[in-house]
Design a binder for these strands. Structure first.
Length: 897
DNA sequence: GCGGACTGCTTACCT
DNA sequence: ACAGGTAAGCAGTCCGCG
């Protein structure tokens, strides 16, 4: 077999003598050192940390011309601190505190207490280093002070890097300039037209809300820059091929490393091993393959890259690639920690020079998955995400150790390629999302890309407290006065009542208008002034301002912090970014950015209500969440009543939407005017269906748009776990339905659907489907040993897999088929077509089609009855490819009939 | 001992 | 580790049934 051009090139490279410096000399050159920047005209703040050596805050900037990371240590003398309500005298009486080596001094200070709505005296306890405050397992200042009714500690659990950002009111991801040793944000100015359009949006709002919006503008509008980055992926030798090597042990050699730069660099580094063939697997043009006899030299190359690129992108690098490299380098290859440009945390790996972004963590984030990417990928694997977002899959590989060099290289290269591409597609959407979220959350890129939405919102709100000089409340203090809920949830075990789902009126309706409230919950939080400090506020005179369906009252005297923050963001999204993101008249680059901001705001706003009902949120305040849903219920029920008064038939509704049966334009107009006037909320026409088919089931419907495209919600036919054969049959039915224009058309559709079901049944009976077609695909939600209450079917299948030596872990998608006998299921890998329980499948077909057909008022049972009857009388229905069947199986199928 | 009524567990979905 | 509400299938339990 002939070698292609690149292979020749790669082989030629071998005979070029390398000028290699001695290893020890190379290692020494790896020691990371940096000097502070003295001046720059534009650089983007990307990271904040505490530098233990200089005992100061350290900022990292990305300078887009040189593509370098610039450092800047704090020179203001900022120090770590926390607050106590004890006086300096009282604190001085605590011997252990006074003698604490980390204590620097006390300061008297006044901070605003939002919970009590009054200024309050605090003592600022200033420390010499952050670990003195907290973070060590014992002996920290925050643990020394006795926690009594008086004698509490505030703000001791904020990481110092965040504390510094909040105090300096810095925003990560923003452009800054440094001149004469002075750091300042790059000024941003809107174009006059934009300025006018935006001020019009807020013309009827309070000054406070306007001020918030004004502060958001530069954060949301300032330009971003292309971030120079490298994707890194490693392959490691394993003893057991099915198991992932232990990154903390790092016992085995690193066999291959791919480094793909956004600058066009495409390197694959291979470790030479005896007896390995080069092979003839092709790699893309321009990939350079480098072969190393010595693993240490290979590592030196990795480290040089980690000291060169401002951003390093991995997929699971926190827990694998960088962790493995670190331990391998330290434990087996004789590198000192000073020579390894990686720092390991408990759950993350960071870099001494640049910023490490682990895409696994970012894509795993449920908010990102759902709101930013619309659930386009369903599994959190590089393969699944890559396939869904950029259409590139991983290469297949059976055994790393048996692979040729070129095969290994191609495999490893592909992984790095997907990783890099995931940060590049859609004009670097992912990098820009991380940037804009960091700006909004005031969080370093490293944290934004790793943490969840509750941390983003926490950080944003904390920064706001510092800006206005308010003490950040202790979670237990919020809970003490505002911890109880008054409504009862419908679902057992939930804390409070949620949204209303209107009982659908079953049937087919032509010309259905779907109206919904724009950003319902954020609108409520804005309009009704909801915030932890305003709900159940301390003022007697506010107690009559009651939230419907609850005993809670809301402050009438002061605007709540979260109401302002969420309210201003909501208005900017609903009235500016949402439409701009869709505006085809804008330049591509402009619209692309509006789209990024729109996505980011969507993620934040969608979670803004939920966090108040979540214990892990540091400002957890259940009455805020409860009041939000209560007002939501009030809004939708009142709107339905008004619709009915206007003579409009409401056939369905869920949380923030109502489905109206062929309303006249003037009726819609009167209704939306009414909600604007009476509820102060915007009700918009969201969708128009040519017809909608509703069954009696909530959250289950099918809507056909005028252009024939179809909305399917909640139906089994499109669920992930549904077997492929059924999804296809369902799809056929949907196609038929999408062609229905008038009531008369349903007659023909009915015939066609009958055919589809019949074919499905016959093919099942004749075993014409493949096992893959028949497989249910169910996610293993937790590790197998943690199922203690019941043994679901997918677990039974998973157990059989483990017995067969195939490891299953939490998060795996288990594929199984239903078979005769006990336990009734078999994993796809172990099953054969002859044992498939056709009857069970037929039941499943029935219930899947039932969901739609009883909506259409079609007698599905009749169709099914006929189909079954035909087979009962032995009428054979020819299909495309008839298959011979044994008589007994025929019998078995009939038993239930 | 067996099956129907019931509850609870689990997953996947909707807003 | 943002929330609650809903559907569906199955596992497990209780109880009646000569």
């Amino acid at each position: 077999m002939s070698l292609d051009a690149y292979l020749v090139e790669a082989r030629t490279q071998e005979i070029v003598p390398r000028r290699e410096r001695p290893i020890e000399q190379e290692k020494l050159s790896l020691q990371f050192k940096t000097e502070d920047a003295t001046e720059f005209s534009e650089a983007f703040l990307v990271s904040s940390s505490y530098d233990g050596e200089s005992k100061t805050a350290l900022l990292k900037f990305y300078e887009p011309v040189s593509h370098k990371v610039l450092s800047l240590h704090d020179r203001s003398g900022h120090q770590p601190y926390c607050f106590s309500d004890l006086s300096t005298e009282e604190l001085s009486g605590i011997g252990q505190l006074i003698s604490h080596p980390g204590l620097d001094r006390f300061e008297k200070i006044t901070k605003y207490d939002l919970l009590r709505d009054t200024p309050a005296q605090f003592t600022k306890i200033v420390a010499k280093d952050p670990l003195a405050i907290g973070g060590r397992p014992s002996g920290c200042i925050r643990d020394i002070i006795p926690q009594n009714s008086k004698g509490k500690i505030w703000e001791a659990d904020i990481p110092y890097r965040d504390c510094y950002i909040y105090d300096e009111q810095l925003a990560l991801g923003m452009p800054y300039q440094l001149s004469d040793g002075k750091l300042s944000p790059k000024p941003y100015k809107l174009m006059q037209q934009e300025e006018e359009a935006i001020s019009k949006i807020f013309e009827n709002e309070s000054q406070e809300l306007k001020d918030h919006a004004d502060r958001w503008i530069p954060l949301l509008q300032s330009p971003t820059t292309e971030l120079r980055r490298v994707a890194l992926d490693i392959e490691v030798a394993t003893e057991i091929p099915t198991r992932l090597p232990d990154a903390n042990e790092a016992k085995q050699q690193v066999l291959c490393v791919s480094l793909l730069g956004s600058d066009g660099t495409r390197r694959v580094l291979l470790l030479e091993r005896p007896g390995v063939e080069f092979g003839d697997v092709r790699l893309p043009q321009g990939v350079s393959i480098e072969r190393y006899e010595d693993e240490v030299r290979l590592f030196i190359e990795i480290f040089k890259a980690l000291l060169d690129y401002p951003f390093v992108i991995t997929f699971n690098g926190d827990n694998f690639d960088l962790r493995y490299i670190f331990h391998r380098a330290e434990n087996y290859l004789g590198f000192s920690r000073a020579q390894i440009p990686i720092e390991l945390g408990k759950e993350s790996a960071t870099l001494k020079y640049g910023v490490h972004i682990d895409l696994y963590k970012f894509f795993f984030n449920r908010s990102i998955q759902i709101y930013a990417f619309g659930q386009r990928y369903k599994e959190n694997t590089l393969d699944s995400v890559g396939e869904a977002l950029i259409g590139v899959q991983k290469l297949k590989m059976d055994n790393l150790l048996k692979a040729s060099y070129s095969e290994l290289a191609a495999y490893c290269y592909r992984d790095a390629q997907i990783t890099l591409e995931l940060t590049r597609f859609d004009d670097s959407l992912v990098m820009r999302l991380i940037t804009i979220l960091s700006r909004i959350a005031r969080m370093p890129f490293e944290d934004t890309s790793r943490q969840g939405v509750s941390r983003w919102i926490r950080s944003l709100v904390y920064s706001e407290h510092r800006r206005i000089g308010a003490i950040i409340p202790r979670s237990e203090d919020i809970l003490a006065t505002k911890g109880v809920t008054a409504t009862e949830a419908i679902i057992k075990g939930k804390k409070y009542k949620g949204a209303i789902v209107v009982q659908p009126k079953p049937g087919v309706y032509f010309n259905v208008s779907v109206l919904d409230f724009a950003s319902l919950y954020p609108s409520i939080i804005k309009k009704h002034n909801l915030s932890y400090e305003t709900i159940l506020c301390p003022h007697q005179e506010c107690r009559s301002n009651i939230v419907p369906d609850t005993p809670h009252w809301v402050c009438t005297k002061k605007r709540g912090l979260s109401s302002l923050i969420i309210g201003s963001l909501r208005d900017l999204r609903v009235k500016w970014y949402k439409s701009k993101a869709k505006d085809k008249t804008l330049l591509h680059v402009t619209r692309s950015w509006y789209n990024v901001v729109n996505q980011a705001l969507k993620v934040i706003l969608n979670a803004s209500y939920g966090v108040f009902g979540s214990e892990i949120f540091s400002l957890y305040c259940p009455p805020v969440a409860e009041a939000t849903t209560a007002i939501g219920r009030y809004a939708i029920t009142e709107t339905i009543k008004e619709a009915e008064r206007l003579g409009i038939e409401v056939v369905y509704g869920d949380t923030d939407s109502i489905f109206l049966r062929s309303p006249r334009p003037d009726q819609i107009e009167r209704l939306t005017e009414w909600t604007a006037k009476q509820l102060g909320m915007e009700l918009d026409v969201d969708k128009l269906y040519r017809y909608a088919a509703l069954s009696s089931r909530k959250k289950n419907y099918l809507g056909v748009f005028p252009d024939g495209s179809v909305d399917i919600k909640g139906l089994t036919g499109k669920k992930r776990n549904t077997p492929e054969f059924l999804k296809k049959a369902f799809e056929d039915m949907v196609k038929t339905l999408s062609g229905v224009q008038t009531e008369e058309d349903f007659g023909r559709a009915r015939q066609r659907i009958r055919e589809i079901v019949r074919t499905c049944y016959v093919k099942l009976k004749n075993k014409e489907y493949t096992l893959e077609d028949l497989a249910f695909n169910v996610m293993l939600g937790k590790s197998p040993d943690r199922y203690t209450k019941t043994t679901p079917q997918h677990l039974k299948a998973a157990t059989q897999l483990s017995s067969a030596g195939l490891e299953v872990v939490e998060g795996d998608l288990i594929s199984y088929v239903k078979v005769y006998g006990s336990p009734g299921v078999k994993p796809l890998q172990l099953a054969s077509i002859n044992e498939v329980d056709t009857d069970k499948y037929m039941d499943y077909v029935e219930s899947t089609f039932d969901q739609v057909l009883d909506a259409l008022g079609l007698e599905f049972n009749e169709i099914l009855g006929i189909v079954r009857l035909e087979s009962f009388f032995g009428i054979t229905v020819p299909t495309r490819k008839p298959v011979e069947r044994e008589f007994e199986e025929e019998e078995e199928v009939e038993e239930t009939g």
